[in-house]
Simulated assay, not measured.
Amino acid sequence: MGNKPSLISKGRYELKFRGNKCLNCGHPLDISDKYCPNCSQANSTKKLVLRDFWDEFFSSLINYDSKLIKTLYAMLLKPGTITKDYVNGKRITYTNPFRFLLSLAFLYLLLFSYDNNFSNLDDLDLKNKFQKTSPISYAYKESDSSDVKKQTEEALGHLDSLRNLERIPIPGMQNMDSLGYLINQEIKEEARKDSLMRANPRKYFQELQSGDSGSFVERMVFFFTYLRKDSVRTFEDAQNKFGAKHTWKNKMAFNGSKSSLKAIEQPGTYLNNTIAKLPFVIFFFLPLFTVFIWMAYIRKKYTYTDHLIFSFHNQSLLFILLILSLIIDTIFNTASAGIFLLIFGFYLYKAMRRFYGQGRIKTIIKYVFLNTIFAFLALFVLLGLLTGSVFTY
């Protein structure tokens, strides 16, 4: 009996406050139960006071810090070991890999947003520069009802000039009459659309949506043009002014055009908002990339989830190195990201060797293969993120 540990704890965990039933889930408890084995709630009937909050807060903080230090130590100095320990059941020692990666991603985002100069791009007045240099500015220039006749005559004169192109002999093109005819017809059709759009935009858009045949890009160009001219502001305006039907294609084209114009007007804000989505994109990207890791090590005993944890740990290390790079660059006004990326490349190779336990040649081959796949997927996801951000900005 003398070796039995004491059951007495301080504060709300004293024996006199122990109950025989969990207040949360109703599970039967013994007086020796400090926590409910069913739901993990503290076995205490004591009314909460402010001191209890402080005690539990600091207890949780110290416990988390202890896990954090052990996680950082294993991750930085023992590549691959932390993943091996975690998948083998040694999990209470380290922080949750998913939560840890999410915290690092947000921390990196905050530091990156604070340190970048993207907001200065909003002062470049790209909207006016775009209007002056846009190749469609001639076709879609500002007009009112009094200028419609004049602009239509100009467009018809432009068509006459295009017809004269058919009569101009081009050396070496004698056997390409059909191709030249098709090109001229295409040019004339575009000019006809331009003139109609300027002279009668409502009729032009009716042609676009008649039979739902107008392309998505053409509708975006149309909406973009009149949004830029402040002729419309909402989709309801487009419905009233141009007779736009309430279809998914028209609605998406309008929203995409509106977001694109806003991105041109505020490029810095657009980039910051796009980068803000990066932490969420990572958690869709890594599970996809993990499929290729699973394929590369399909003969190994590890499950898909084990490979996913390996991805989370390595990505966490990358964020740690990038955060260190940002801090060093801010303090010393340097550019150290390249050095830390090289360190990560070496770290990744060591982690693959230690976790999967294969020889140098096999590890190098799979290292090159997986990094190539990673680069292609990252490029694809980045393009998708930029494109998606245009439609949601």
Rank of each mutant, 00 (worst) to 15 (best):
I343L: 12
R99W: 06
L68E: 01
V281W: 03
Y356G: 06
K132C: 07
S311V: 10
S231A: 08
F254Q: 15
L286I: 14
I309W: 06
P79E: 08
N24Q: 12
P5W: 04
A74E: 15
K141I: 02
F118W: 08
Q206F: 04
N200G: 01
S311N: 15
S6R: 11
S103M: 14
L382G: 12
L156T: 05
N120T: 02
D237A: 02
I187K: 14
S257Q: 06
A335R: 08
S213K: 15
S6W: 04
N272V: 06
I168M: 03
S210H: 14
G338V: 09
L68Y: 10
K129F: 07
M352F: 11
M295P: 08
A378P: 12
D230W: 00
K366N: 11
L165G: 10
L326M: 07
S137G: 09
R228S: 05
S195W: 02
W248F: 09
L321R: 00
D85I: 04
Y138F: 09
K4Q: 14
F346I: 14
G268F: 03
I293P: 03
L68A: 07
A74F: 14
S66A: 06
F53I: 07
K251N: 02
P171N: 02
G80Y: 07
N63M: 08
S113A: 10
A335F: 00
M295N: 04
V281A: 11
M352H: 01
F216Q: 11
A74C: 13
Q41T: 15
S178R: 15
T81H: 10
N333L: 07
L227C: 00
I328T: 08
Y297W: 04
H313Y: 11
K21Y: 06
N250A: 00
F310Q: 11
P267S: 06
F292T: 15
F98L: 15
A263I: 10
F355Y: 10
Y13G: 13
K129V: 05
R163S: 03
K127A: 03
V232I: 15
V221Q: 02
S6Q: 07
P279Q: 02
L104G: 09
P169W: 06
T234Y: 01
L196E: 03
F376I: 11
Q174A: 11
L76T: 08
L182G: 14
F235M: 02
K229Y: 00
G268V: 04
D160V: 13
R354S: 05
R360S: 00
D147Y: 04
K245A: 01
L324R: 09
A155L: 00
L382H: 05
F130M: 12
G211A: 13
I328A: 02
I343Y: 01
S210G: 08
N164P: 00
I82C: 05
Y226M: 11
F100Q: 03
F284W: 10
K277M: 12
S178N: 14
S146P: 00
S143K: 00
F376Q: 05
S143D: 02
V49S: 07
D144E: 03
V87C: 05
A337W: 06
T305I: 14
F100H: 12
Q185W: 01
Q239G: 09
G211L: 13
D230V: 10
D85N: 09
L156H: 01
L342S: 13
P135E: 07
D230S: 08
V232Q: 04
L278Y: 15
K129T: 03
F112K: 10
K366I: 10
V217Y: 01
I92W: 12
E236P: 03
A238H: 07
G26Y: 04
R51V: 10
K258A: 03
A351Q: 04
K127C: 00
P28D: 07
